[in-house]
């Protein structure tokens, strides 16, 4: 029975082998065959992700990264934090129990690129926002082992002394708009001032941030100092918003379960 089932495969292969024997004399036939065979799968798996609507949930309250948070994200990438930290809570019970509601596609809708990660040397960070204080984050980044003995995370003390470069922020936001993040003109033009304002609550710049990004935006001395704007400010601002861009995951999962 089984052998009969396999017959068509065998016959197909026989044909294939003969065709092959002739085709392998022509480098372009070979090249064309390779391109064809290797294109099908990728196309079928990637293209529909753009056309099937339910791929990315609708979250009306989804907000954008502020320029300071985006700058922090760029530092997160620069330092390679994603090599140890995932930002993707899988739909598995133990992950939901440990880290909170599983991650939804919409949460990384504006993440160019996504930072889901592939290794958890350290814990998942998808919902780490507001899990700790700014002060804790700063001190942890300066010296992780001072707070968590036995941690293998590197120190990033230099971030406290590194002044944040804000001049390129309008360009960065504009590039993000070019790839599909809906930043408005005012947000792009004021990007540098907004970055400053978000970390310097008692300045006029801060008002602009609230106006352009909403009253809910965290506007604080993230690095605990009022003087200059540092890379630490940006990175902590980013960490503190992780998981806070939309309330949808908690709402969905509250409605369905617990």
């Amino acid at each position: 029975m089984f052998r009969k089932l396999l017959k068509p495969f065998a016959r197909f292969f026989e044909l294939h082998a003969r065709t092959h024997y002739r085709a392998e004399r022509h480098s372009f036939a070979l090249a064309a065959g390779i391109i064809l065979a290797a294109s099908v799968g990728g196309f079928i798996e990637i293209a529909p992700l753009f056309t099937i609507d339910e791929t990315v949930e609708a979250a009306p309250d989804m907000r954008l990264y502020t320029p300071l948070e985006q700058a922090g994200r760029d530092i997160y990438i620069r330092e390679g934090c994603y090599a140890c930290h995932s930002q993707m809570i899988r739909s598995l019970q133990d992950e939901v129990d440990r880290y909170g509601p599983y991650s939804l596609a919409v949460e990384s809708q504006y993440d160019h690129p996504m930072l889901w990660g592939s290794k958890r040397t350290g814990p998942d960070l998808a919902r780490v926002g507001e899990k700790y204080s700014d002060d804790w984050q700063v001190r942890h980044l300066v010296d992780p082992r001072a707070l968590v003995p036995g941690s293998v995370m590197p120190q990033y003390a230099f971030l406290l002394d590194a002044e944040l470069e804000t001049g390129s922020l309008p360009d960065r936001l504009a590039a993000l708009r070019a790839v599909g993040v809906p930043y408005g003109d005012a947000q792009i033009v004021n990007a540098a001032a907004d970055a400053r304002g978000q970390a310097l609550p008692d300045t006029d710049w801060a008002d602009g941030v609230a106006e352009r990004y909403g009253e809910e935006t965290n506007i604080r001395h993230f690095d605990g100092r009022s003087g200059e704007l540092t890379e630490m400010d940006a990175l902590v601002a980013y960490l503190q918003i992780l998981g806070g861009l939309t309330d949808l995951p908690a709402e969905i999962q509250a409605a369905r379960g617990d």
Binding site: S91, L92, Q93, V96, D97, Y102, Q253, R256, G257, D258
Partner: peptide, 13 residues
């Protein structure tokens, strides 16, 4: 997979 884990979490709850 999402409904399955919702269900599993609810059951555990």
């Amino acid at each position: 997979q999402q409904l399955v884990v919702d269900d599993r979490v609810a059951r555990a709850y």
